[in-house]
Structure formats: structure tokens, C-alpha cells
Amino acid sequence: MVQSNRQTEADIKASGLAWAIGRNGIYIEPDVEYIDGYKARGEIANSAGDGKCGYTTRSELAYAYAALLTKDDLNGGTFDLNGTPITQDALAGYLNSAFGTNLSYREVTAEEFVADRSAELGDFIGPIIGGIYEGIRKGVYDRPGDYAAVTGRPHQSWDDYFTALSV
């Protein structure tokens, strides 16, 4: 998928049109939406290890893309649109504080995680999700991002985001 995205970026750059490219962080909402699954397991288990992930939210992306579309000074730039990178341990802590759970994080092998995701989501999506978490483990999504440079304000903090979800 990344190769396809990079080809699309190259095509846009070669188009002769004015352009600005946003590279989304990993959406955090699926982890929030999966809270019942995490509760049932009592843990978050994936192959990210100690890797940090520059997550984002759909609402923060909407704000950033509005800026990309309306600020001419961003033309010709490629921007990483993510919040502060966090580990899976930190994610578990945020989910615990928001939902009153006692989740922990457990690292599994990449093969185990792909098998688990494939069993639940199918043989097409399972390896894609596995690849994302392998990227997290390898540090691919551990970058500060350009959110503030694009929008003129910092990305919503994870403390604020998860406090707003608290039950």
C-alpha cells in the first residue's frame, strides 16, 4: 500500500497542478472502537513492541486537510499529519483511564498477530493490519509530524483526546 501511495504522490507532483500532500498518521479511533474486544481479552496484544506510533484522529485530519486546501504557502509540500507518537503501553494506559479498564500490553510475534487479525478480519485485511504494526515496531511511524506547521496549532494531545472519551 505504501508503494502505491508513493506512486500516487509522484503522479501528483508530475501533474503540473498546484499540490500539497498530507500523509496521515495511523487512525486511533479503531483502537477506541475495539475497546470491547480488548476488554474481553484483558489486554492489547500485537507485534508493535516498544515502537512508537504517530496516531491521529479523523477530526484532526479534517482540520489539517482544510488547511492544506486553503493555504497557498503549503503548495509543493509533503506533510506528516500525526500527533505525538506513543507506545502500545501508553495506549493501554490511556484506554484504561478513559474506560476504567485494566488492560496491559503484550507483544506477540508478527506471524501470530497476522494470524489473529486474519482470523477476525479475513486474509486480505489481516496482513495489511499486521504490516502496519510491523511498521510501528520498526519505527516507521515514530516521527514528530508537521501538524502544527500545517494548521498553525498543535495536534490535540492524547490526554485531552482520551479525557473527552472518559465514561
Rank of each mutant, 00 (worst) to 15 (best):
G25Y: 09
R117N: 00
T78Y: 07
S4M: 14
G54V: 08
Y34A: 15
T101S: 14
F162K: 02
L17Q: 06
D31H: 14
R106D: 13
N24C: 07
G93C: 09
R41V: 03
T78I: 13
M1K: 08
A92M: 08
E111H: 05
L81P: 00
L103F: 04
L61F: 04
G77A: 07
A45H: 01
Y34G: 09
E134H: 12
A48G: 14
L69Y: 08
Q88V: 07
N75D: 10
Y141P: 08
K13D: 04
G135K: 03
G83Q: 00
N5I: 13
S4F: 11
L17E: 05
A64L: 03
G37T: 11
Q7D: 10
E120V: 10
S157D: 06
N102F: 02
K138Q: 13
T109M: 11
I86N: 00
A64S: 04
R41S: 10
D11R: 07
L103S: 01
G139C: 06
G49L: 03
A119E: 05
K71R: 15
G54Q: 01
S166I: 02
A20Y: 03
V140D: 09
G22D: 10
G76K: 08
G76V: 12
N102P: 04
S157E: 05
F99L: 07
I129C: 05
G152C: 11
Y133H: 14
I86W: 04
G135F: 01
I26K: 05
K13N: 07
E112M: 11
A119W: 00
Q156K: 07
P127V: 14
A164Y: 00
G130F: 05
L165F: 12
S15Y: 09
G22K: 02
A90K: 15
H155D: 07
Y63Q: 08
F79M: 01
W158L: 12
A48E: 01
N75A: 15
A62K: 01
Q3W: 00
L91I: 01
F113Q: 09
G93I: 12
V114Y: 05
D123G: 15
V150A: 01
Q7K: 12
G131S: 06
G37M: 11
R106F: 11
I26E: 10
D89V: 14
G77M: 03
I12N: 04
D72F: 01
I86C: 01
I35L: 11
Y141C: 07
S104R: 15
D146Y: 07
Y94S: 08
Y141T: 11
D142C: 10
Y105P: 06
F79D: 03
E33C: 15
C53E: 03
E60A: 12
G42D: 11
T151M: 14
